[in-house]
Nucleic acid binder design. Structure first.
Lengths: 117, 117
DNA sequence: CCGGGGTGTCAGTCTCATCTGACAGGGGGT
DNA sequence: ACCCCCTGTCAGATGAGACTGACACCCCGG
């Protein structure tokens, strides 16, 4: 994965994806090796549809990938695994990404209203 | 700032703090230099109480610091500035932090219920 | 005394992510 | 036929966070 997630939108998607205890635990669990949805639901003791939603979120952020495989017995199983990412986060990185996001506009007027710094 | 935010709680606080377009823009704005609340509210065109809340969140996460100063004219002004942080985020880091967070417990039973990987 | 700029805090509203239970399938063994 | 395991999706309840307007308060300058 890119060190710099480029656009603010993308960065935001990754951050919101990670900002959840459940999703952190999911990623943690997947570092141990890939797993399919129902299996993971049992392991993490959480509702399957719920886990499903979280996995979708993580996949949309590009942090995990899921592949629907047809097992030898013919049934479908969806395996997920982590994408080895490395995200460096500093104020400047944020500053860069935020530009792709700012509906800022300069001071309304001012006329030397502000104090010194 | 630490490269590894240590506890899962702490990591989560930082992540949830960053997972907001407003707060990203706030940090971006503060990289340009410190500013006080009302001033920043004008610059970013947002409600002051709202900005106030976001700043509190960021401060709680240790990403910015605020100092209440008494200006030469005697009035109080609260300046905020970014804490130069550097956060490295990888699956393994998450795995480490998640341990301080897991109410996991192994499989309910199993008995070889799962498929091979 | 009044206006202007600042901080801090509050109750109330509203939007949105989360979470649950249930359903419709598909496929395989017994 | 029945049971078991899997995937995918949905309507609805719940809750947490975002957001607003208004207030109390401070200090100064005209």
């Amino acid at each position: 994965m890119d060190q710099a997630p480029s656009s603010g939108e993308e960065l935001l998607r990754v951050l919101t994806a990670l900002a959840s205890p459940h999703r952190l635990r999911i990623i943690a669990a997947l570092t141990e090796g890939r797993a399919y949805v129902s299996q993971l639901a049992r392991r993490l003791r959480m509702n399957r549809p719920l886990l499903y939603m979280h996995l979708q979120r993580l996949e949309a952020a590009g942090l995990v990938v899921g592949t629907l495989e047809t097992a030898p017995d013919g049934s479908s199983v969806k395996y997920f695994e982590v994408v080895p990412f490395a995200l460096g986060l500093t104020p400047d990185v944020i500053r860069g990404a935020a530009q792709t996001l700012e509906p800022d506009g300069p001071e309304p007027d001012g006329s030397g209203k502000d104090r010194d710094t």
